[in-house]
Design a protein around this nucleic acid. Sequence first.
DNA 1: CAGCCAATGCAACAATGTTGCATCGATAAG
DNA 2: CTTATCGATGCAACATTGTTGCATTGGCTG
Lengths: 156, 156
Amino acid sequence: MTHSRDDETSLHEGIQSAIDVCRLRGAQVTPLREAVLTALWTAARPIGAYELRDELSETLGRTISPASIYRTLDFLCGQGVAARIESRNAYVACSHPAEEHACVHFVCNDCGSSSEIENKKLERLLAADAKELGFSIGHRVIELSGSCAACQGGAK
Amino acid sequence: MTHSRDDETSLHEGIQSAIDVCRLRGAQVTPLREAVLTALWTAARPIGAYELRDELSETLGRTISPASIYRTLDFLCGQGVAARIESRNAYVACSHPAEEHACVHFVCNDCGSSSEIENKKLERLLAADAKELGFSIGHRVIELSGSCAACQGGAK
DNA sequence: CAGCCAATGCAACAATGTTGCATCGATAAG
DNA sequence: CTTATCGATGCAACATTGTTGCATTGGCTG
């Protein structure tokens, strides 16, 4: 995830860490990029590009074009500090900006919250399946939707 | 998958099997639904809704509306005889119309072909991760894109 | 300060997906 | 056979999501 406790500190740390990752690679972290990153971290759930656009337009006090949003998101995903949730046409902050990026995303249908984990065993299994097929894996999309612990406790 | 040998026989069997599955559940298999199913099986790769629309409009000799296509695809996916590839906004025929549907889709970036497997170990792993999070899994999306055996042999 | 290149603004457009309502057609009851 | 009913389709308009090209800005470098 996602800061399980939504305290300011871990939030800020996550954002700062992402910024550092980008900078260490020589990539520019512009105000827009930082604003998008902050919005993603703050939301802690998948946000659509146009929703992000509306939010940022208000925050920054000026109109942001879809193109800018998409380019910014492409940048962040490319750096591994954000990820696209394909099954929702939405984006989340990512706290594992590792090289080989094969996170499993758990997305709650009720509250929308998104948790992210890595699982080495799972990677090995997929690698084994791929080998058997002679398939060379590029990008991975692993998204599980359902009901998170909190929502089950309350409503189930 | 996908009929590894693309002979007419296994193709026809796959389609017929899917039709039977639907009928046994009391669902109607209309000409349009059968045509879509056939197109998916024949293609053996993810096809977009609008591409499907064009193809069927020609095949059937009349214009099919996007709404009809999407409703038909919803039906087929609901029956488990087709699946949406989220990372491509496209659809493929599915040969494992089981209840709990957690196929892994391998999609080739070069030739577009799509293979589908089931993996019980992988299911157990995901279930274990979910349990640890207290997450109740509903839908699963597992899509791996890369290069298939054939394309690596030829072009790599 | 000058020059360069990446990042952004802006506008138009393209692709994908949805909704509401009218109509058709298959199945079931009489 | 006729009629009632309900699901499937046709159709049109619309909503959402994503892209492209080109002009402009802005930050780093020499």
